[in-house]
Design a protein around this nucleic acid. Structure first.
Lengths: 219, 219
DNA sequence: AAGCGTATAATACATGTGTTTGAATCTCTC
DNA sequence: GAGAGATTCAAACACATGTATTATACGCTT
């Protein structure tokens, strides 16, 4: 039963921290939501801050075990891998409403990094990022500079992330009926993969960029 | 001089609200930063919340007048318009360190919408969004469905926004020397425009998508 | 059944918060 | 220059929060 209230507190804290942020969330609210006594957070975790860190660790764990890096069959086409990657990312961020506090929590960490950010990136984000890079490797000319591959990776990640971060703004910009019609997770997956593969195809076809783009309007 | 402290408070509040969020920011800290008395916030604004709303309005105003929708010469190529659009967006979000609290504030509103979000979107975001849509209109097959154009617009916006939102994570992922070498605003502008134009070119060249992508892995 | 360690509960305390107050100071008009 | 209104200031208030303390109930060994 000790473990019971402990994990109840963790779950409640996850959702509330994700909603309100560390400072705005109150121990009292968390305990009320967890149906636990006010003192239990102090008993089980010492103080509010280590409860927060513990919550982030949990988000970590849940995320990785809930959607592990999928092991592809040996000869999977990189296009297919990219599709699965995008799908997984969107699913993690927009699907699973009961567990989506994990991504909201990570989003908060992005915006306002705490001490937990660095290990979070190293243990959870970087493997994903490297995997995306390796997928791109298979589709790009072998001599493509590292920083180019990184920026392409960020372009793909940014497209996915946008619907988590700016979801509320999207909801205001696009009327609901239209949103239901063309902005389901499947729709977004199709679009992002289409868009990104189109870009990669064209970049591979014409690495010199026929429209001769140059930075400062002197084109 | 009344107006002086009033605007000093507004400026300080903007930066601090952007850094800490509404709840975590304290009136005392704001007044200390503004070199104003603690009571002045209440005298000039009534309470903390209307100070916050006033701050958002100011962010609004500053942003629109600082980088107004640029009026293109009549026959500007859409590619060039897109370039300027992306550049403006990046510049607003990453450049101008003294005024970048405005975009951080808006980012916060995205993540945790308040009552101010809706007017913010309608008055400030939607015009930009519509302008981007009209630029895309010039480059896409005329029959392109609205929701496709919207998603393409979000793909471009998402790429730009990513460096504001996840900037800290990018900073951890990419070692500093590499970051300096390939992730300046100019570099990002070039990449995002390249990537997006490549996608648009390929989508226009082959609207049926030669790699025959279909959503559920049955390709 | 007694005693012990553990988990929970209710309460108390110190601190920091937004807000208010009333006097002091400044600014401008007459 | 005097007075009235506007503005600033230091201090205080009421309240909510994180944390600590104490007491009680439970499960387990002996």
């Amino acid at each position: 039963m000790s473990d019971d209230t402990r994990s109840r507190i963790l779950a409640a804290a996850g959702a509330i921290f994700a909603d309100c942020g560390f400072e705005a969330a109150t121990v009292r609210e968390i305990c009320r939501a967890a149906k636990a006594n006010l003192a239990s957070v102090n008993y089980h975790f010492g103080d509010k801050e280590t409860l927060y860190l513990e919550t982030i660790k949990l988000a970590h764990t849940l995320k990785t075990q809930q959607t592990p890096l999928p092991p592809w069959p040996p000869n999977t086409a990189p296009e297919e891998k990219l599709r699965v990657f995008v799908r997984t990312m969107l699913q993690r961020m927009l699907g699973q409403h009961d567990l989506c506090w994990t991504s909201r929590l990570m989003t908060r960490e992005m915006l306002q990094p705490t001490l937990a950010s660095k290990p979070l990136v190293e243990e959870f984000i970087r493997p994903q990022f490297d995997m995306l890079l390796s997928i791109l490797d298979e589709m790009l000319p072998p001599a493509t500079a590292l920083h180019r591959r990184q920026k392409i990776a960020f372009s793909i990640i940014g497209q996915c992330l946008h619907y988590r971060i700016s979801g509320e703004f999207v909801a205001i910009l696009i009327p609901e009926d239209e949103r239901r019609a063309g902005f389901s997770i499947d729709d977004l997956e199709e679009h992002i993969v289409n868009f990104s593969l189109a870009a990669l195809t064209e970049l591979a076809r014409d690495p010199a960029h026929s429209w001769k783009y140059t930075p400062h309007g002197k084109a």
